[in-house]
Design a protein around this nucleic acid. Sequence first.
DNA 1: GGTAAGTAGTTTATTTTATAAACCAACTAA
DNA 2: TTAGTTGGTTTATAAAATAAACTACTTACC
Lengths: 101, 101
Amino acid sequence: MKGGYMLNELDPLLHSELRLAVMSILIGVEEADFVYLREQTNATAGNLSVQLDKLSTAGYIEVRKSFKGKMSHTTCRITPVGIDAFARYVDTIKGYLHISG
Amino acid sequence: MKGGYMLNELDPLLHSELRLAVMSILIGVEEADFVYLREQTNATAGNLSVQLDKLSTAGYIEVRKSFKGKMSHTTCRITPVGIDAFARYVDTIKGYLHISG
DNA sequence: GGTAAGTAGTTTATTTTATAAACCAACTAA
DNA sequence: TTAGTTGGTTTATAAAATAAACTACTTACC
C-alpha cells in the first residue's frame, strides 16, 4: 500500500468503524464514560470493551476505572498521541476520498 | 451503530483499505487494468483478485476479462451504482472525521 | 431473606474478513 | 529444455470483529 499514486497507508487501528467512532466522539469532548460511548455507537458492551483496550494499549486513549460505591465506572479520554493519530488518519483518508485541503 | 449521535453506518464493502483504494482510483479514470491497480495499491495479486470479486459481485465495478493473444487481461471500471455508493461513503465518513459539507 | 431483573463491564468463543502462500497457464529468453 | 516472468485464481492461514456467556454488584418486589 506504499509507493502508490496518492494513497498512503491508513492507520489500521483507526480504520475500524467502532474505534473510529469512539475516537470521533472523544475528540469532541473532555471525557466520556463507557455507557455513553456504548449508547452513541450502538456497540455491544463486549465489542466496545475490546476496542477500548486496543485504543488504550496504543496510547490513543486513556481509560480510567473508578468505583461509584462498589459499581465500576469507566471513563475515557483521548490523549495527545491519539489526537495526533486521528489528525493523520483524517489527512490520509482525504487522499482516498478525493477531498483536498 | 445506528441511532447514534451523528455517526451513520459505514458501507462495509467500501470500508476496507484495499477496496476503497480501488474505488478511489477507478472513480478518477475511465478504466484501469489489473496490473495498474496492483501497482498503484501495492496489493498482492491474490488479495486484489479477491477484493475485485467482492466489488464486482456488489455491482460497484464491472470487471472485463479479455485475452491479448492467449494471455488474460483484466480491466475494471466503476459503475453508476459504485459511484453512488462511493459518494454516500464519503458523506458518511465525513461525520466521523468532523468534516462539514 | 430470597429471587428476578437490571447495570457495568470482561472473557471467551465464533464468525467474518483480510492476507499470504501455493498454484495454473501462458510467454520470453537463454 | 528449463528457468524466470506475467497475469491471474484458489486455498489456507492469520487477524479482526462480533456475539454469547459470564462475573459482580444493585434495586425492587414478594
